[in-house]
């Protein structure tokens, strides 16, 4: 009796957050992401396309200050390519020997360059709203990648009964249904080099994959190791079970 109760307790406890996340609101349109599931991996081509979307669209307002240019090696860029990518940005360094700050091209060991000097400047340029840092955005929103994807394509004409604030847009996935970010992605906003069609939906998908990678760069390694660890516990468990059975045979 108590045993069954304990198992139910355990299962519900683990799942309670999931229930909490999904109740009340409209259901997110779930995507079949390649990184889902036990053997999930990243589609590197999609991450690279997503990086391009980030650089050309998002990076105008959103920082990613936990990511380094060197991290791009993970998604299939060579060291030389990364140097070129980094050198397109300028960072403020210093002080030099004369005690002055100076600008220099970014290096692979630098973090992604912020679009604004500080939070105040960011607010000033964005109508008082602060564009959140995107480094761990997929981990910091309920629904994760699905939420981000839906948000990006979730812009609609506001229903008649809703009065939008000044400079606000209607997006049914946002808390309060109003968002300060204008529609970021349109068909053809970004040109892809690999010939993938650049519809708004495709752009949203790719940038979501990129953000997922940025939030969880360890995902592939984690899942691979997880399979091994669980296998170990199963094998060890079988041996222990056999040992236990033999030992306890003499009791009773």
């Amino acid at each position: 009796m108590l045993r069954k109760f304990a198992i139910i307790f355990l299962v519900i406890t683990i799942n309670s957050n999931l229930f909490a996340a999904e109740s009340s609101k409209e259901k997110l349109i779930k995507q079949d992401w390649s990184f889902n599931g036990i053997t999930g991996t990243y589609d590197k081509a999609a991450i690279q396309r997503g990086l391009k979307v980030y650089q050309e669209v998002c990076a105008g307002c959103h920082s990613m200050n936990l990511i380094y240019y060197r991290d791009l090696e993970d998604i299939g860029f060579s060291k030389e390519q990364i140097k070129v990518i980094a050198s397109e940005y300028t960072v403020l360094d210093g002080p030099n020997d004369e005690g002055e700050m100076f600008e220099r091209p970014a290096r692979p060991a630098d973090k992604f360059v912020d679009p604004y000097m500080n939070a105040q400047e960011a607010r000033l340029s964005n109508n008082g709203s602060y564009p959140p840092d995107l480094s761990v955005i997929n981990k910091s929103r309920k629904g994760g990648a699905d939420y981000i994807y839906n948000l990006l394509i979730g812009y609609e004409e506001p229903p008649a009964d809703i009065v939008l604030g000044e400079g606000m847009y209607y997006n049914k996935w946002m808390d309060g249904k109003q968002i300060a970010m204008p529609t970021p992605l349109y068909d053809g906003s970004v040109d892809y080099e690999d010939g993938t069609e650049n519809t708004a939906i495709q752009l949203a998908k790719d940038v979501t994959v990129f953000l997922q990678w940025a939030a969880e760069p360890e995902l592939e390694e984690r899942k691979r190791l997880g399979v091994k660890v669980i296998l170990f516990f199963i094998i060890f468990g079988i041996f222990v079970f056999l040992s236990k059975r033999r030992l306890w045979k003499q009791i009773h």
């Binding site: 060890f236 041996f239 222990v240 056999l242 040992s243 033999r246």
Partner: peptide, 13 residues
């Protein structure tokens, strides 16, 4: 043999 294997696997783990 069984018990020694069990202990060894556990130790490696």
């Amino acid at each position: 043999f069984l018990h020694v294997s069990t202990i060894t696997i556990g130790a490696i783990g």
